[in-house]
Every structure is written in C-alpha cells, then in structure tokens.
Amino acid sequence: MRDFSYLRATSADAARQTAALPGAMLLAGGTTLIDLAKCGIAEPDTLVDITHLEGLDRIEIDERGAIIGALATMSHVADHADIKGRFPAISEALWQAASAQIRNMATIGGNLMQRTRCPYFRDPSNFAACNKREPGSGCSAIGGVTRGHAVLGTSEACIAMYPGDLATALVAFDATVHLGDRRILVDDFFLLPGTTPDKEHAIEPGEMITAIEIPSSAAVRRSTYLKVRDRQSYEFAAASAAVGLELEADGRTIRDLRVALGGVATKPWRARAVEDALKGKMLEPEAVRAASLLAVEGAVDHGANHYKIELAPRVVARAILKMGETA
C-alpha cells in the first residue's frame, strides 16, 4: 500500500518549505490532486494541506483591481458581487466550469494548476508513452483519439489541451500570479510544451501561489466568457473565448479589445492578432468575423480535432459581437 503522510500547514512559509521537499505536494481542494492520485499519476509521499491557512481566501477589490487569495473557492469568487459587476468574464468562466460540487471544494490556486484531460496522460497502466508524464517516452495521443486535443501551441512532443476556464479569462486581462513576493503574468506562468511538456508552469520548488491579481480596465468591466461544449453543463470547452471590449465615446469605434481562447490550445491562449486587427476599427459584424479568423493563425489539427479550427473563430466573433450589443 502507498502510505503517505498528511500535514496540515500552519503558515504559508511552512507550507512552501515542506512542499519543497522531494515527494511532497500541496493539497488544496483536492479535486485535481486526488483524482490524479487515483489515476496513478500523482504519487505524493507527503500532502501539505493548505486549506486551513488564514487569510489566503480573501478577495480584495479597489480601483486598481482585484486580488483574489489562492484559497478562495471557485464558487465563492464566481458569486462575489464585485467580481460579477466589475470582472464579469472571471465570474462567468468560473460558474461555467466543472460542477457545483467541485466549485464548492476547488480553490483558485488549485484551479490554475489543473492538468490536461488527455486520456493517454490519465491512463498510465495502458499507455506507457506520454512525454508529459515520462519525458522522452513518446506521445500516445498523436495518431490516436484526438478530438479533445489542442490545435494551437502544440509541439511534436505533446498536443495536450489546457482545459481550464479561469486562466483563459485571466490571460485576456493581463492578470498576474502572486508567488509570495514574486509576481508573474499569468500568460508567462503557463509554458508551451515545446520539448519539455512535463514542465507546465513557471513555478519552482518552494514556491506557492498566494493570490492572483487582475488589473481594472474598461475592457474587463465590459467582458464575457463564452463557452461552447457538447454538453450544456459539467464539461470542458470544445472552444471558449474570454472577451473584453472598450469603445470610444462614439459607441462604435473599438478602443480596447481583449481576446483569449480556451479549449483549443496547450495553454491559455491570448489572441493578440485579433485584438490588433480590430483596435481602432468600427465594431461591425463582417469586420469582426474576418478578424476573428486570425485567432487560429498557425493552428495545426490532428484529424478529429479539426473542428476546433472552424469553431474557435466563430466563438470569438460571437463573444465580441455580444459585447458590442451591451451598451
């Protein structure tokens, strides 16, 4: 039997230090970690439970932005009146994620650290080859069932899709991750697979996510998260878009636009090409649809996931046009 020890952290510093020891892992809501342990992927020797740490679940909002503690639960953040009012895309991304039960348990820090749903990654006893799990072992997905795999940001080593919704909204609005005193843009926190798909985040041993910070902007105030999926609820995105829009005083010219894609890329995907093509332009359906096609520039499919290349620009266009209608 795999014995492991369970420690309840008494301070953030103690948690960080303990979790830096070999075989130790932080435990927050456990909705990812315990699942992965059951799949035989995570095999921690020590679990450091951080859910009892005081103060790390705070949500602080002022005119500069929102700081959300790593231990705030998904449901708490999604329901927060000021998050809903001033950062709607964040709330919408959260309440459309997972299920009510999971959202009640899961934390914001754990959410950023969730792993891919690639079925080959999740079944080590049947599929030995997975570069993300075992660097250099190969990739079982390429040539296999790829309907849910990424079309953007892939490499020859790994085509696994990043499944999270929240981080997609975060990259659209230049949010940063607080790792104690260190700050890093969410966009930089998530790494492309390249030749090292096992390394997913710019986080080092001894570091812990303490908060995320979302700067205020007119675009985030007028934002949305549109998630398209096979099932109406409790499913990951087939394609999603976080969009924020700021119009000039004329109510028609685009001053600022933020676009990020979910469900189609190996990391939360900022679509700057779409933003650049539309900034300064009139908000018109034709122009929006044409520009949205830039969202999937450079996309590569693996057969069954080809539909994502068609779908993603349509989701982006719909989200932008929807924001345009809300004056």
Binding site: R117, P119, Y120, D123, N126, F127, G143, G144, V145, R147, D230, R231, Q232, S233, Y234, E235
Partner: peptide
Amino acid sequence: LEEGIVDRRHGRIVNNNLADYLVPTNAD
C-alpha cells in the same frame, strides 16, 4: 452525447469514465 470511443491502435475504449463518456446533465 453518448459514444464509446476506441483507440484504433490499442483496441481500447479511451473515454471509460463519466467525465469523458457524456450522459445528460439536468441542464441538457
């Protein structure tokens, strides 16, 4: 929604769990 998806190289059902084998939720 429902379909058992087989990996053609291994002859194995890959969506053998209730997150990937989709049954309707109340919202559907």
